[in-house]
Design a protein around this nucleic acid. Structure first.
Length: 775
DNA sequence: CTAGGGTTAG
């Protein structure tokens, strides 16, 4: 605006009146005593000082040319500098090239432009040209290059500059050496950074801040905090930048006590007026899990910027409070704050968590309006959101059109397919990714392993294990956990345990996977033993751990133990129950036959029971043939969701009629099955028609005898060598008759048969089942 | 032209 007035007046009024109106600027310029007064006093020089955008610059240039000032070094250098600042290296270079007698200053300015606005390699090329042209570099020229080396992680180049500086006798220059420390830290060579730092003859606040930020950014939070104390021991007081550098580290290790003491210091110094300091405080509290304190600071801070909003919204999203995250996001839009890519990613995260497709699509439109579609990270978040909302089709379309896909994009898609049960698509996508020479990472492998686990096919599982080993990703704790889970899901529970035992580092999900594995295999004792081991270790159980252990107790009939776990969850670990925990408890009580207790448990729940709770009640009523409670549960179920009620009825009917008659070998299988049934009947098997009603008597036996699991076992026996264990997977609960029949088959055929049903594993061997007829 | 340090993110 100031420039606009000046531009207007420059064309109409004498120079002197304009110059007198900007005496402060003129004074600054006058200090540059090597510049002739007629140049620095010229109004065009003042205009350039006030210039704030490329548009204004383009308006000023004709005036400079018209006044014959274009030949003056001051103007040439200033133009090069401004073009660089506004990001146009082309125009800067055009001005630079047109200068016939270039002075050192314009070389230095051009170098700065290249180092900051172009690839660091262009910076080095220009540096070489400058040397060839006989221009001697000054110390600060190296600092431009060092910054670029740090940003691009170019250690080799950085070390060259380091050597150059030492050779030129700048080893004691605090400014240059601080740049070196920063460069090593950014290149993740924090030890090298520290070696340079300790050799400083005198340490000022800036170099301390550099090394503190270096440790913080390299994940060494404790060391960063330690250095702040050390710095204070040397009589230096942390400034806002020290605070902003160290707080993320405090948050990362969740050290609330240290965070609070820093907060106290900030308060005493009055630093909370700095928006960035308050923002860093909010971030720290959120990362330490103290959402309320973070929110209070956020609500009363002045000068909230988009980063503050982003941190707050993401804080809620990360803590699972999607509703509050989205509420805040809308408030931000209402306040007229323009979202950035980070905002959008946090909001999409919240949409995905709450499976809110409608809002997700609104944000998708917003992405286009804001012109954020070239941001690959934002597009990756959209892919994840659509996958989570079961719209893999839309996600795949976005992926197809995505320019500059990253590994994250591929991972999001693979995970999406895996989570939506599209195992084949997941594997195909993985194959395409490798064909394009994109190297998988631990995230890729976790998704692929999870997808393969779905199949419950042991040989596939072993194949993926081999693949993981070949890609050298088998050291990652999450990959190993996925493998433990996979072996358990493929029925190889002892292999799972062997892998678990071999792990030197275990995450809470690792324990959960193993406990759940024992649970679904009916090894309740092992699950309880493992939980005890966990309680004595360093890893704290979470709400999923309790879900696994309660369900393990349920599968093995350890009702009292299950009840105890449910109570210590809240009392000892302060973990609140979710709807899944209530469902697991109803299952625990109901399955063991304590149906009235289960019903009372539902009536006494502090929150409204949802579908899963009544579903468990209905299932238990069915097992124990309690029609009265079963109907009550079913009624509540239909009220909550009529469609799901239909699903349950369908489930019951399908149970009796499922078959694999489509199979090409069906005739052969049916014939074989007939002889098999005869053989097990000879061994004492009696067909149970109890579970089928409304069908004519003579058809009943035939229907039961052709249940899908019997057909599948027959298929397995026909197609594998004698003695090979047979793995069967069933998406419903195994029926009583099939269970009995399978026991007999395992005896007469001398085969180990592993059946995975909707809830658990059954290991049949020599006429008995691992579930002890309890499931 | 005339130098060095900082915050959000799968």
């Amino acid at each position: 605006m100031g420039s606009q007035v000046l531009i207007a007046s420059l064309s109409t009024t004498p120079q002197s009146s304009i110059a007198s109106s900007s005496s402060r600027i003129q004074h600054t310029l006058a200090q540059r005593n090597h510049i002739p007064a007629h140049v620095y006093k010229h109004p065009a020089a003042i205009l350039l000082e006030l210039c704030t955008s490329m548009e204004e610059l383009h308006q000023i240039i004709p005036l400079i040319v018209k006044n014959g000032l274009y030949e003056e070094h001051l103007f040439q250098t200033k133009l090069v500098s401004l073009f660089c600042r506004y990001g146009s290296l082309t125009e800067a270079t055009r001005v630079f090239d047109s200068i016939e007698d270039k002075n050192d200053a314009v070389y230095h300015t051009m170098l700065k432009g290249y180092a900051q606005n172009s690839s660091i390699f262009d910076g080095f090329s220009f540096f070489c040209r400058m040397m060839d042209d006989g221009v001697q570099p000054v110390v600060y020229n190296f600092t431009y290059l060092l910054k670029g080396c740090g940003e691009s992680c170019l250690v080799r180049k950085g070390k060259e500059v380091h050597a150059q500086l030492i050779l030129n006798g700048h080893g004691g220059d605090v400014y240059a050496m601080t740049c070196i420390v920063n460069m090593y830290a950014k290149c993740r060579l924090i030890d090298d950074a520290y070696k340079v730092f300790v050799r400083f003859p005198e340490r000022d606040l800036v170099c301390w801040n550099t090394i503190i930020a270096g440790y913080a950014q390299n994940g060494l939070a404790g060391r960063a905090i330690e250095l702040v104390s050390q710095m204070q021991g040397e009589g230096l007081r942390p400034d806002p930048i020290t605070i902003i550098s160290v707080l993320p580290a405090v948050g990362n290790i969740g050290h609330l006590r240290v965070g609070k003491s820093i907060h106290g210091y900030v308060f005493r110094c009055g630093y909370e007026r700095h928006a960035n300091v308050s923002t860093a405080l909010v971030d720290m509290y959120l990362k330490c899990g103290s959402l309320c304190i973070g929110r209070v600071i956020f609500d009363k801070m002045c000068g909230r910027n988009v980063v503050s909003w982003n941190i707050m919204i993401d804080g809620y999203a990360q803590n699972g409070d999607s509703a509050e995250a989205l509420m805040l996001f809308e408030k931000m839009l209402d306040d007229g704050v323009k979202p950035t890519g980070v905002t959008i990613m946090a909001a999409l995260h919240a949409c995905a968590d709450s499976v809110d497709l409608e809002r997700g699509q609104f944000i998708h439109r917003l992405v286009n309006e804001l012109g954020l579609h070239p941001d690959v990270s934002v597009m990756n978040s959209l892919i994840s959101m659509y996958c989570k909302c079961k719209r893999v089709d839309i996600a795949a379309e976005i992926f197809k059109n995505l320019k500059g896909r990253t590994l994250v994009s591929w991972n999001a898609m693979i995970l999406g397919y895996a989570q939506n049960g599209r195992v084949i698509d997941a594997l195909n996508h993985f194959r395409h990714m490798k064909l394009q020479n994109i190297e998988p990472d631990s995230f890729t492998m976790v998704s692929i392993i999870a997808a393969v686990s779905e199949l419950s096919i042991l040989c596939q599982g072993k194949w993926i294990h081999g693949l993981v080993t070949r890609t050298c990703l088998d050291g990652n704790v999450f990959v190993k956990t996925a493998l433990v889970d996979m072996y358990a899901k493929c029925g190889a529970i002892s292999t799972a345990r062997k892998l678990f035992d071999l792990m030197d580092e275990r995450h809470v999900t690792t324990w959960n996977a193993m406990i759940d594995g024992y649970g679904t295999h009916g090894c309740g004792r092992d699950a309880i033993e493992l939980f005890r081991e966990m309680e004595n270790g360093d890893v704290k159980p979470n709400n999923i751990t309790f879900l696994c252990i309660i369900s393990a107790c349920s599968h093995s009939g350890f009702v009292e133990e299950g009840i105890r776990y449910f109570s210590i969850m809240k009392e000892k670990y302060g973990i609140e129950s979710t709807m899944d925990h209530y469902g697991a408890m109803v299952d625990l009580l109901g399955r063991s036959g304590r149906l009235n207790e289960a019903w009372n448990f539902i009536l006494n729940m502090p929150v409204e029971p949802e579908i899963n709770v009544f579903g468990a009640m209905l299932g238990a009523s069915k097992i124990h043939k309690n029609v009265e409670l079963g109907e009550m549960a079913a009624n509540r179920l239909f009220k909550l969701n009529p469609n799901d009620g239909g699903y349950y009825v369908l489930l019951a009917n399908m149970y009796a009629s499922a078959s694999i008659s489509w199979h090409s070998h069906s005739k052969k299988i049916y014939a074989f099955l007939e002889t098999l049934i005869d053989r097990i009947k000879a061994a004492g098997y009696v067909s149970d028609t109890d579970s089928i009603h409304d069908v004519e008597d003579d058809l009943q036996e035939q229907m039961v005898n052709t249940h899908s699991e019997k057909l599948a076992i027959a298929f397995g026996l026909l197609n594998t060598r004698p003695g090979t264990p047979i793995h069967i997977r069933k998406n419903l609960r195994v029926c009583g008759d099939c269970h009995t029949a399978t026991k007999f088959i395992s005896l007469v055929e001398q085969r180990e048969i592993v059946v995975r049903d909707l809830h658990r594993f059954h290991h049949f061997k020599n006429g008995t089942c691992s579930c002890g007829d309890y499931w």
